[in-house]
Amino acid sequence: MIKDIFDLQNPWRTRPDYPFPYKPRRLLSVLLDNLDNDKMIGIVGSRQVGKSSLLFLLIKYLLHERLIPAANIFYFSLDDLKLHELFHHLPDLLRFMGQSNQRRYLFLDEAQRLATPGLFLKQLYDLRLNLKVFFTGSSQLELKSKTREHLVGRARMFELQRLSFSEYLQFNEPILPQEALHELLIYGTYPEVALERDPTQKKLLLKDIYQSYVEKDITDFLKLENISAFNDLVKLVAVQSGRLLNRDNLAKTLRLSRALVDKYLQVLESTFIIKRIYPFHKNYKKEITRMPKVYFMDLGLRNFVLNNFNPVGLRTDTGVLFENFYLMELLAEDPYQLKKINFWRTTNQTEIDFIVQGENEFSAIEVKWKATGRPRSFQTIRKYYPDIQTRLVTPEDFLR
């Protein structure tokens, strides 16, 4: 039975002409740069974001560019519980793979499905076999809870985002940039949603993604019982996207404890639904204790939660959507997560959308759907930080 499942999951072993019908992703080149080091490679990201497709693109590269024999590549989708029998004891997996002196490649999709993935991967790594391991996980919270200290120094982690703007254009060639920008502000950038051209089907796909998220991540793993309160919180956070997030107000409005609200927000962030960014301050202690701003990691999901798929020209929140979109672009441009992203706000309400700090970078970025001139906030922040670079981002930056 296990061999039959494995053969179905690894069609390239019996079909040398297997087509690998997957669109390229920006993160692929970064992963290829890490192909020959000794680290295990972990890929985390939301459900339906394309992690499995990315693994298949890696396998395609190994087969077609590196000319690695198919017999040296092992892919397991651990959503199939029957395969878990191989992972109760490490010797069982090694016997299944057989012996070889050649370098081999092991791909574990949805590794958090295993009971103790961290310990298993640690034991495998510590054997120092000629084996490169890739693993994925849809819930950072679940994966971290099961790996903890086991992977420190052994694994390099990457987060796969939804489609960037350039990827969205590539997925929908020959779409015009303006059409693409308007589309993704409404329906988001999940790959499957991006490829679907019918608006009704896009909405249905977003509904499926959200329901699957609630059922698998929230109900099955986290065992949250008050799903109604959780959904209400998601709606309130969606309304506040791009604004300061006041947890006390959320707790009061929902009649929940502050501790429960904090738990729900941590769940949403760890499962790649929201992103909190904190105010920029030279004193880090003050930075993390002040009120953050919240953003949705996918605008289609945000609009589904609010049941608002009105076109860009009929909305009052287009500026918020565009600001949210640009944060996702910043995250996609930083696969190693080396940059720090904050916002800046003074006591008299002068605000800069994003402060980006990285190697040789210290930038203040204002994002405007409709710009009427250079923001005055740039003059203000330069009084405090004369060496900061300023940048105004508008739709024109994406329509050239």
Rank of each mutant, 00 (worst) to 15 (best):
I388F: 08
V305M: 11
F354C: 14
Q266K: 13
F325Q: 03
L233P: 02
K282S: 13
E142I: 04
N310Y: 09
K223M: 13
L63K: 07
G153S: 11
L78P: 00
D317T: 02
V152E: 08
A371N: 07
E142W: 01
Y326M: 14
F378I: 08
L204N: 15
H84G: 10
Q161P: 05
D317M: 04
L181A: 10
Q123Y: 05
R113S: 12
I273T: 03
G118L: 05
L57Q: 06
Q9A: 12
L58N: 05
V393Y: 01
T253M: 10
I59E: 02
R113G: 08
T200P: 00
F322A: 06
N360S: 14
L306I: 11
L32Q: 05
R26F: 11
N303G: 05
L81K: 15
K144N: 15
Y190F: 15
D33C: 08
R103I: 06
D220F: 12
V320I: 13
Y18E: 10
N249K: 14
I277T: 05
P16A: 06
E142S: 12
I274Q: 01
S46D: 06
I2E: 08
N34F: 13
L31Q: 00
N10G: 09
I227R: 08
Q337I: 05
A70G: 07
T316V: 09
E167Q: 08
S52L: 09
